Amino acid sequence: MLINCAAYEDGKKLADLPISSIREYVSRPGCFVWVALKDPESSDLEALQGEFHLHPLAVEDATHGHQRPKLEEYGDMLFCVLHVLEMDELGNLEVGEVDIFVGPNYVLSVRSKSRIGFLNVRERCEQEPHLLKNGAGFVLYALMDAVVDRYFAIVHRLEGELEQIEDRIFTERGTARANIEALYALKRKLVTVNHAAVPLLEAIAHLYGGRVPQVCMHIQEYFRDVYDHLERIVKITDSVRDMLTTAIQVNLAIISLEDSAVSKRLAAYAALFAVPTMIAGIYGMNFEHMPELKSEFGYPLSLTAMVVLDIVLYWRFRRARWL
């Protein structure tokens, strides 16, 4: 589906275009066309492939989707794949994809499986004509910057989830399994963020250092800024992942401590029952010559001994915090 198609020259928007008029503006010096598609059919990409002379391998990747974040160079054309991360109302992490074709006189963005669009990016670019003068390269930067900035919101929300789980670990009882499940679910989300961010570090590094593609010349500092943001995101996710690993170990240690406390409590109660059982067992052997067997006070004395010994044991167990 076509979202937008417009021509720009000298940092200013010339007009909104139908697909059939793209060739007229692409051939004009100093002019570039910006086309945005959402979940397109293969026929839509084939039509634009002819207009922009896109490389067939890049078009094939965009058609099939499910690509790893990357940046590839085909002659004077750049093909960039970005993962778009979105959090739904239930806290589940959804992964979309944006494929961007960038040439000297065109930008084609193809958005798949993503609810949030990039109209705000287009508005931002149009409000900064002095930067939009740099052409298609600046549009590539603006799209990359928008995608990477969305990662910050996701990472901060994951940090909040970890803090909530940590609070439950130390304040609630009987939820150890639920805490472990929540921690592993959080770990999967962090892995998803890492899979989206880490491959882009190397890709974006090629846009501001070494042999910079022609379309990105004169705006290398902007791509370096995106690289810095992405590096911060990776460091935050690594830090959260380390804290998560520690939280899992603490949760397991608490489970072990609780099991040990239960074992001690059961052993203490078993000892309290064992003493009367031992005394009763001895006097239940019915030997003829046993002390106090025929005494009038034998029965109350044995009961008293049982109670006194149990009281002493109970006091000792309480001091040792077994009970």
Score class of each variant (00 low, 15 high):
Ala7His: 07
Glu9Cys: 11
Lys13Cys: 08
Leu14Ile: 15
Asp16Met: 05
Asp16Arg: 12
Leu17Asp: 06
Ile19Gly: 08
Ile19Trp: 05
Ser21His: 05
Ser21Phe: 03
Val26Ala: 14
Arg28Tyr: 01
Pro29Phe: 07
Val33His: 09
Trp34Thr: 02
Ala36Thr: 15
Asp44His: 11
Gly50Ile: 01
Glu51Met: 01
Pro56Ile: 12
Ala58Tyr: 02
Ala58Glu: 03
Ala58Pro: 03
Glu60Asn: 10
His64Gln: 09
His64Asp: 05
Gly65Met: 10
Leu71Lys: 06
Tyr74Leu: 05
Gly75Trp: 07
Gly75Ile: 01
Met77Cys: 09
Leu78Asn: 10
Val84Gln: 08
Asp88Trp: 06
Glu89Thr: 14
Leu90His: 06
Gly91Ile: 09
Gly91Arg: 06
Val95Glu: 11
Glu97Thr: 01
Val102Thr: 13
Val102Glu: 01
Val102Asp: 00
Gly103Tyr: 03
Tyr106Trp: 09
Val107Glu: 06
Leu108Trp: 01
Arg115Met: 03
Ile116His: 04
Val121Met: 07
Glu123Leu: 12
Arg124Glu: 04
Cys125Trp: 02
Cys125Gln: 05
Leu132Met: 08
Asn134Lys: 14
Gly135Arg: 06
Phe138Lys: 06
Tyr141Ala: 04
Leu143Cys: 06
Val147Glu: 04
His156Ile: 12
Glu161Asn: 13
Glu163Pro: 05
Arg168Leu: 14
Phe170Met: 10
Thr171Asp: 04
Gly174Phe: 12
Thr175Glu: 12
Ile180Trp: 08
Glu181Thr: 11
Lys187Phe: 03
Arg188Cys: 01
Lys189Arg: 13
Thr192Gly: 09
His195Asn: 11
His195Ala: 03
Ala196Gly: 08
Ala197Gly: 04
Tyr208Ile: 03
Gly209Ala: 15
Gly209Pro: 00
Gly210Asn: 02
Gln214Ala: 13
Val215Thr: 11
Cys216Thr: 12
Met217Gly: 04
Met217Ser: 07
His218Trp: 07
Glu221Val: 15
Phe223Ala: 10
Arg224Asn: 01
Asp228Gln: 07
Glu231Gln: 12
Lys235Ile: 08
Lys235His: 10
Thr237Pro: 05
Arg241Leu: 07
Thr245Lys: 02
Ala247His: 01
Val250Thr: 12
Leu252Gln: 09
Ser260Lys: 00
Ala261Asn: 15
Lys264Asp: 10
Lys264Cys: 04
Lys264Asn: 14
Ala267Val: 01
Ala267Lys: 02
Ala271Gly: 12
Val275Glu: 04
Pro276Tyr: 11
Met278His: 03
Met278Lys: 07
Ala280Lys: 11
Tyr283Val: 11
Asn286Phe: 12
Asn286Gln: 13
Leu293Arg: 14
Lys294Asp: 15
Ser295Gly: 11
Phe297Leu: 13
Gly298Cys: 09
Leu301Thr: 10
Leu303Ile: 15
Thr304Arg: 03
Val307Arg: 00
Val307Thr: 11
Ile311Trp: 15
Trp315Thr: 11
Arg319Leu: 10
Arg319Cys: 06
Ala320Gly: 02
Ala320Pro: 02
Ala320Cys: 00
Leu323Asn: 07
